[in-house]
Design a protein around this nucleic acid. Structure first.
Lengths: 332, 332
DNA sequence: CTCTCCTGATTATACGTATAAGCAGTTGAT
DNA sequence: ATCAACTGCTTATACGTATAATCAGGAGAG
């Protein structure tokens, strides 16, 4: 059936032969090139032949010719991220795939600046999505000069170098703090995890809590029952705690209860991420989280627009923002 | 400083010019081609020039020329996977990256067989890593004929078509069951989640439980407190339950305790995945999980061997196996 | 001295695609 | 009838790399 040579994947030349046209015509038809002048009849013949042969364009050849691949590169250090980033990257993958891009995630974390940019350029990506902190002005310039259409930062605040997707950890902390205050807590504290990679987010969330209650205490805590126990036994506890996330909240609550304290009567606790386990704990865990429903679609749409040139790339702009949400249950 | 044209990324021609040699020589040196005869002096000059210019080979051009990219394609339906696959894919990404491959994950789940294979071939991957159930004989043949060196299946048992990485869910269930029996449970049951995508794993784990206790009951359960409550109130409960995973275990335990039953005195419960929360629950949750420490490295090594041609690709073979582990705490 | 062999390079080519440039044939205006 | 303009294609080319084929020059053998 397949009249391709040697059973390798069919090329546009094979399609051209099958349709009785030139390779150029095949390319014009299948890329929907607006400059192309091809009759409807010929278009049909080409599309039929392509379908019949199971033609799929060679991504490498296309990338070489155009100077740009369909790849959206996301060189994040995934190990440090956790459930939120995991969820977001799944959504993003889906969004980009339906728009014809291939999301490629690198777990690479050592390189920064121009050296990093050079390594990312090996794939000639259409877009690069990376922590804003790893970008420098020369790196951004190099990427743009090399054909990368959209360089987008991930950050907890807008970046002066590139448009950014903003995870507003301060706002998340502020929402948690406002709830604690509203239900009666007077002395607030926020947990800052003693884990490399997430401590920065912890500090940002603490800053958000202090926007609401300037005197809020900082609790540095490693994820260990022993340390949580020491903390609780030391006394001098606040009556409202934003525990950084649901797992730290659970850690804290189990330590509090082991010490005979009641949640929320003695200490109210707010977690973050709204994991499924929140409803299973006793008391059920009140939690804040980022609303992930709309943002990845927004972001993919914006990036697609920038890549296709129908939308400008504006440094300092916020292309997608993750809004904090509060889910009230019984722990606070 | 950079003497490249137009500030685009330097090519091997630029390196050649800088080193005073031909483009071919640059290629010979930088690919460490064993057939190449180049003096040490020249090799040094080429490498210096490449480093000075920040040369990184164009992946597309290389893939076009060789007919094969450095991509390892993993077209899994990630949404259906959960924490285990997430953890494994992070490890794999790291392992492949250090070996010079780029792991690309597609969340695509609609295509199967030859149609799927054709779409995967757009990237001319060196290797494809996919659920064995989505492969057919013609698809595997097409992939191999098209230059894919290693086609490896993921499955809960060896595949007749390709070498496979085996997640032995039966063994996981069996380990949990043996522990329950050893500590005194007489009537066993296993939870099979009523969630599309993970129900198959649930059935495999149940089968493992029944290897140990043939009469073990099957509990179909959705992840909802209401349904868990109904289940518990209906009575006729077993005295030992393998709850599919830690979250279902937590769901079940909260329902049991709401009904006044004691864990493990009345019903012993074993979870799976060994999440961090296991130690925070009261009682602390006994859990089985797959040992993820060695397998991804094994798998990446095997695949690298097959791609480089130093190792044969043997259908039916098991290239990596995830071994079940038991962590005993107080819930069982 | 001539011929062969080896060393260390160079030149030439192909991979599959997108697109600029060109070219027959037809149409419409003059 | 002539020429310009348009239609619907084709031909030709470049992207950057890997590698087969070739080649200059020197060494060693006869």
């Amino acid at each position: 059936m397949n009249t391709t040579r040697g059973d390798r994947p069919p090329t546009s030349v094979d399609v051209a032969r099958a349709a009785g046209v030139s390779q150029a015509t095949v390319s014009y038809v299948l890329t929907d090139n607006p400059h192309a002048r091809v009759s409807e009849e010929t278009r049909r013949r080409v599309r039929d032949a392509a379908a019949r042969l199971g033609y799929v364009p060679d991504a490498a050849a296309r990338a070489l010719r155009t100077g740009r691949s369909d790849i959206v590169l996301m060189p994040l250090s995934r190990a440090r991220t956790g459930r939120l980033a995991q969820q977001v990257s799944e959504e993003l993958e889906e969004e980009f795939r339906t728009r014809g891009y291939t999301l490629v995630q690198y777990g690479e974390r050592t390189l920064k600046g121009v050296a990093a940019a050079r390594s990312w350029l090996a794939l000639r990506p259409s877009a690069v999505l990376v922590e804003a902190a790893r970008l420098t002005r020369p790196a951004v310039d190099l990427l743009h000069a090399s054909g990368v259409r959209a360089v987008v930062g991930l950050s907890d605040q807008p970046s002066p170098l590139v448009p950014a997707m903003v995870f507003d950890h301060r706002a998340l902390g502020a929402v948690a703090a406002r709830h604690l205050v509203a239900r009666g807590s007077r002395r607030l504290a926020a947990v800052v995890p003693r884990e490399e990679g997430i401590d920065a987010m912890g500090r940002a969330r603490l800053a958000g809590v202090r926007e609401v209650v300037p005197g809020a205490a900082r609790i540095d805590l490693a994820f260990s029952e022993e340390e949580a126990g020491r903390l609780v036994r030391a006394g001098d506890l606040p009556d409202g705690v934003f525990a950084y996330n649901d797992e730290y909240a659970m850690l804290l609550i189990s330590a509090l209860r082991d010490a005979g304290l009641r949640v929320p009567a003695d200490v109210a606790v707010v977690g973050a991420d709204d994991l499924p386990i929140c409803t299973l704990m006793r008391p059920r865990l009140t939690s804040v989280h980022f609303d992930v429903t709309a943002s990845p679609a927004d972001l993919a749409g914006e990036i697609d627009g920038i890549v296709r040139g129908v939308r400008p790339s504006v440094p300092g702009e916020v292309v997608a923002r993750f809004e904090p949400r509060l889910v009230v249950r019984s722990s606070a």
